[in-house]
């Protein structure tokens, strides 16, 4: 099993007691720019957020990186045109994505309910499950 001193694996995705999920540090050299560190999250969130930020006209630059694959956090760097702050831009992007997800959820729900009515689910999901798999017939090395 795990080495005795190995950290618990859930520490990769569960915030520690009192740990802040987000840290914002404003860029000192570039105007309207900030680097936001999001802890205990990975590409799943980062890439999606970056994609949404890039679609916003106020955002001049958005990129993310996971500095080390063993360190469970990512950094998003955002520069805006000054009409909104980078933090606000990120927040808007998230809100927009949540909206997209909810509408998608509703659509999925509708689609699934249609399929239920059609009764497709009653089909044999496992194909030819009545015939045994190849390994049950004949001898193999375990028999010797």
């Amino acid at each position: 099993m795990n080495a005795p001193n190995a950290p618990n694996r859930y520490e990769l995705y569960v915030l520690e007691e009192g740990e802040k999920p987000v840290e914002v540090s404003e860029d000192t050299k570039i105007p309207n720019a900030a680097t936001i560190k999001v802890v205990k999250q990975d590409h799943t969130l980062a890439n999606m957020v970056r994609g949404q930020l890039l679609s916003m006209p106020q955002v001049l630059f958005a990129g993310y990186k996971v500095p080390h694959p063993l360190h469970p956090y990512f950094l998003v760097k955002i520069q805006t045109d000054g009409t909104i702050t980078p933090t606000a831009a990120l927040e808007q992007a998230c809100t927009k994505l949540i909206g997209t997800l909810s509408s998608l959820e509703a659509k999925f729900k509708r689609e699934f309910s249609f399929k239920d009515v059609e009764g497709v689910t009653t089909e044999d999901a496992y194909g030819t499950s009545t015939t045994g798999p190849a390994w049950t017939s004949g001898r193999d090395y375990m028999d010797f």
Partner: peptide, 19 residues
């Protein structure tokens, strides 16, 4: 699929909350 969509929303919501 449905849990996946919910989970993504939770992640985003927690990010907004963190901000």
């Amino acid at each position: 699929v449905m849990k996946g969509l919910t989970e993504l929303q939770t992640k985003l919501a927690n990010l907004v909350l963190g901000l």
